[in-house]
């Protein structure tokens, strides 16, 4: 929950998370910021990372000073439409 977060602010946050992931990745730690989705009506922002473990995601967010409610594992599915089109 991040009340009042605008698309423009999300763009600042993205830069912060990309930079944070870049700095904290390496030395055996693998993390990459992928994308975020803002749901303004719910003041909710979902951020997708690819990382070795959740603590790294936590550290990246804390370094970017970006608040979060929780960190959950996610599974990515390719859309059937894309598969059909191929």
């Amino acid at each position: 929950m991040i009340p009042g977060l605008t698309v423009q602010q999300l763009s600042i946050a993205q830069h912060a998370m990309v930079e944070s992931a870049r700095r904290l990745g390496g030395d055996g730690a693998r993390i990459r910021y992928i994308r975020s989705m803002l749901i303004p009506g719910q003041s909710r922002c979902l951020c997708l990372f690819e990382a070795d473990h959740r603590n790294l995601v936590r550290t990246v967010n804390e370094t970017a000073q970006f608040p979060f409610s929780r960190i959950d594992e996610a599974v990515e599915l390719v859309t059937p439409l894309t598969v059909t089109a191929k």
């Binding site: 929950m1 991040i2 009340p3 009042g4 977060l5 605008t6 602010q9 600042i12 946050a13 912060a16 970017a64 000073q65 970006f66 608040p67």
Partner: peptide, 12 residues
Amino acid sequence: QSARWLVATLAE
């Protein structure tokens, strides 16, 4: 005083 992202508040 708010639950907003502080960096954005500071930047604004």
